[in-house]
Design a protein around this nucleic acid. Sequence first.
DNA 1: CTGTTAGCGCCTTCAA
DNA 2: TTGAAGGCGCTAACAG
Lengths: 365, 365
Amino acid sequence: MSSKGSKLATIRDVAQRAGVAPSTVSYVLNGSRSISEETRERVREAVDALGYHPRASARTLRSSRTRVIALALPRRAGLQHSVDGRFAIELSDAAHGLGFDLLLTTSRDKAEGLRRVALSGLADAAVLMAVDMEDARIDVVREVAFPAALIGRPADENALPWTDLDWAGAAALAVRTLAAAGHRSLVYLAPSEAEVRARRSYALRGIEGARGAAAATGCAVEVVHSLDDPAGEARRLRALLTDDGVSLRPGGPTALVVQHPSAHHHLLASMPSATGLRVPDDLPMVVIGTLPEDRSSSALSRIELPVRTLADEVTRLAVAAAEALRQRRGASEEPGARLLAAALGHLLVEPELLPGPTPLAPPQH
Amino acid sequence: MSSKGSKLATIRDVAQRAGVAPSTVSYVLNGSRSISEETRERVREAVDALGYHPRASARTLRSSRTRVIALALPRRAGLQHSVDGRFAIELSDAAHGLGFDLLLTTSRDKAEGLRRVALSGLADAAVLMAVDMEDARIDVVREVAFPAALIGRPADENALPWTDLDWAGAAALAVRTLAAAGHRSLVYLAPSEAEVRARRSYALRGIEGARGAAAATGCAVEVVHSLDDPAGEARRLRALLTDDGVSLRPGGPTALVVQHPSAHHHLLASMPSATGLRVPDDLPMVVIGTLPEDRSSSALSRIELPVRTLADEVTRLAVAAAEALRQRRGASEEPGARLLAAALGHLLVEPELLPGPTPLAPPQH
DNA sequence: CTGTTAGCGCCTTCAA
DNA sequence: TTGAAGGCGCTAACAG
């Protein structure tokens, strides 16, 4: 199958060897025209014999299709890296499923990389992660009329197609479940203040959901933001939960909701020695946004981040947006922002609470 | 700066507006010819006014340079996903630092995606992760004469440029350190049997290093493979470490070395309830291959995986390999495998043991 | 059912 | 210091 001495085979080499015209080879490869079985076979054979593979750049130049999806992944100060990385891999799989490759675009400036990729025609569409309520990249893609879809639910839900876990619903579900189990007061460990200040969508919506459920159930919910320093975090939780540093303060919070990827790893390890409380045995806990198949969270009550579903869906949306733009270009319409948004689609994934082995009710005395 | 009504600007539009020839614009953009300050300024202005950005596909077609690096990331049965994902992000950063983008290629068949990317000219070079001792992809890239570099040290160290943590050295360092602290027997929790059966380089080398250090120090080292089932793993460790399920068996292992990304998260949480032993207080532990900046491992004695260093280095190696191939092509030499390997480079990163707050000596009675 | 032809947008050799 | 022209490899519109 391959290995010529000199250069890579081109479509003309194949045509020559098969005794047909280059266009015929193209048609056989793209299936966009009916070809006699005999010719098709001859072409196939020539392709194999020469180890021919079409050059992506030539295809793209001619057809203005890259079959590439860009992933815009702004580097964040903290490090949701494990979540972001997991998404990147899952998105790559999803893209391959639709016949696309995935181009990673991590840039310090949130929008710069994305603009570059769009303008240089490196991709047909983009997927945006780490979405803020008002995300600068939304303006960028609309300005350059570039198809895009979001993992994350922005304030303006009609700006672009998006998909997300219902973080507000998830937080509310966690609070309601604990309230129903008999807790009258709990601590909600939310994403860091930096995330909130950046107006990260998942952070704001989670907190909002928790507050709403607190009001609805009458269960007191104290919202605290997770810290970068694990030791400091353990100290603060001890102050919140205990008087003596050993047992729960009477009338104080009796459970924990954690909405911070990977924070719970640390909590599980450090809480016993820091507070004398074993989690979740002495202190029931629900974790929101764990990664599926994560060994260390499989024994916890949790609401998982449906990475696979979100990746599949957002890829579908991005490709659909690219398709729609192409159609309109074909019909030589003006690709104004209004039209871009016409092909909108949303998917808000309903949260599901997976119970761990430990009961959520307050421990008896 | 941009937004024309109809089409994207081309180099001809820029030339026209600036009143120069297209080639002049090209030279201004690429800096490959001396241009009068005045012309340069006119071109610059036209570029800005039209929001011009060169089309990547046209550049590539003409120059056969993509400025893209491919990352070949085979999907594995288990899920080192957190490690793989972290590498993907770090590699993307490293690539951008050198003016490249990163294309993710996750394929079930280890070699298929890589071959496709190489043959279709989607990238200038590849970085290969999850390297086996004898890796099929090594043959693939040599067969198609595609520049590549490995994160991982294959059996044939001269096949391709590579970089890796010295896993054997790391395991030996962990064992030696614990032996020096007074332990006479310990358990080495190695990667899963599936990883070993796949002859994954890091797994085999780690185990080999541990065995070697055992022989050298006289410290008994029992190698066990980590299980997919966390509960089963806890049970097995209990059987190995205790008779009564509560305290260490006299004369038995008194410490743990863990070489399995993310396994230690689970251990920390489950060991106390499963065995009555607190880790690392009652059972000193050294973890090999933790991710930097991982909150939950910052309180452990550990040998970190130098993700940043490896990513930077392998990117450098891949780009250098691409460069070298291009030079040879320019000199119209035959790009035989021997020549490809000529530009070889290696970097074996020396392990460094970061001490946790807990002493490594066996606890006193 | 198949062949011919004209570019897609850019870089680079050749000529001035 | 600058222009003109050719072609990278492919697809799609137009002929037969």
